[in-house]
Design a protein around this nucleic acid. Structure first.
Lengths: 242, 242
DNA sequence: ATTTTATCGATAAAAAATTATCAATTTGGC
DNA sequence: GCCAAATTGATAATTTTTTATCGATAAAAT
């Protein structure tokens, strides 16, 4: 009915924001290639964390209610999310098998097959990413950084090499990199994006506070810390007025 | 039989995820203290960026459709968002007055009256935040950092002082800080949160990849970079299969 | 072995968010 | 001053997401 009219009527959602994600056909256990909402996907890593925590405490089963409380949503929603994503069904009177569920979620999120990525910009934010402990277990493997600052080219940051911008294209092509992270000042962001796309990168995670334009077919996600902040600040107001 | 056992009625959404935010009564122009959804609030900063961009190009008016395209969302939704938030009505045949709209949104988001905040953890991520250019104009003013690493205590990072953890409580109380940012390793996060809350902080922005527990009345937002990443990776999959 | 009970999963209902439609309005040109 | 074009804003329709209800089921208790 609606659906990728592309050029016809409406033209919004070009590179982003399709809202639903089709489970790759290659999956095995995954129920039947269902569509899963972004909201659900955003909750998955939160479930995961809690599950890992509980697993390390020796809990073999977790009821949906415990999960629910840890993420501040209703138990029913947890069950619905899991039904859409996990192969393992829950068992009455006990809950979900911790390790199986962890495996299912990690698989769904693609944490099992690491994706290599590069980062451009080895300044403050870039350096932080290169050392961020959270990525190790989350399917993202940053293999190199690129920068135009002569002083740091050739060095290693958190054990990752820093190359000159000129080497980006050949490196990306040689290693078949598909994911790029932008951590440069606002003014340079668009040109970095263009360079990445030209080299063959298909998904870009942008941390520069600038609205970028990506060609069709390239996934661009601009991480908006200001947006998150706004929500936090808003809630703070709400709390303040008791 | 049913759930909602535990304590009394429902217990989920304690510290977060209320979903709607009441506009502070103190507002002047804001239509009539309406409720605005989180989804709307998350779009606001994106509108803002585009508006500032266009404003600097000299455009005095922006139609909802241009805004819509820049954020990849429908024009109707833009108008609905703005109706909920902006005092200035759009003008037929021209669009919304750029500068007025910018002012309205900034005011709504609280970017006009800066909130002071502290950050705990002056390692990689913390350093990045201390220097992040995006905060300057977004209502957040990081005034000091705290760390337990003797080597950096007493120094200045991006012109902000670094203090010892012991000084946190007195500093927070003296300066009446209400917002805290956590940028420490996972293992230390909960204890930092507790310390912050004990000192009087009411809203916490957590960047450690750990599920924390905050007492009721404290707003806790755990920024989940892994979750964002999952969404990006998912979309990449989708794109890959053409 | 039977009963009890906690927990799931499916279905239905409700609420929320987004999109479609269209009359109303204001600008800009004639 | 009048007409046409563009754009808003309000209302209605649709879709999506979340919550509620309840029978089914399997573990634990008796």
């Amino acid at each position: 009915m609606n659906d990728k009219n592309t050029t016809g009527t409406e033209a919004w959602n070009e590179t982003e924001e399709t809202g639903r994600i089709k489970v790759a056909e290659a999956g095995f256990e995954t129920p039947q290639s269902r569509e899963v909402s972004k909201a659900t996907i955003a909750r998955l890593p939160l479930y995961l964390r809690f599950l890992q925590e509980e697993n390390s405490k020796g809990k073999t089963h977790i009821p949906s209610e415990a999960l629910a409380r840890s993420v501040s949503v209703s138990p029913v929603l947890v069950r619905k999310d899991l039904a859409a994503v996990a192969a393992t069904p829950g068992v009455p009177r006990k809950g979900f098998a911790t390790v199986r569920l962890i495996a299912d979620i990690e698989k769904f999120l693609g944490y099992d097959n690491l994706s290599d990525a590069i980062i451009v910009g080895a300044g403050g934010l870039g350096k932080a990413f290169l050392g961020y402990e959270g990525f190790k277990n989350n399917g993202l493997n940053i293999v190199a950084a690129f920068d135009c600052d002569e002083k740091i080219i050739g060095e290693r940051i958190s054990d990752k090499p820093v190359y000159a911008m000129e080497e980006l294209e050949s490196f990306v092509q040689k290693h078949m990199i598909r994911i790029g992270i932008i951590a440069v000042p606002k003014a340079a962001a668009q040109s970095v994006l263009d360079k990445m796309v030209g080299a063959g990168i298909r998904a870009v995670w942008n941390f520069a506070p600038a609205p970028l334009i990506a060609p069709k077919g390239v996934v661009l996600k601009t991480e908006d810390l200001a947006a998150s902040l706004a929500i936090l600040a808003g809630e703070l107001c709400r709390v303040r007025e008791n």
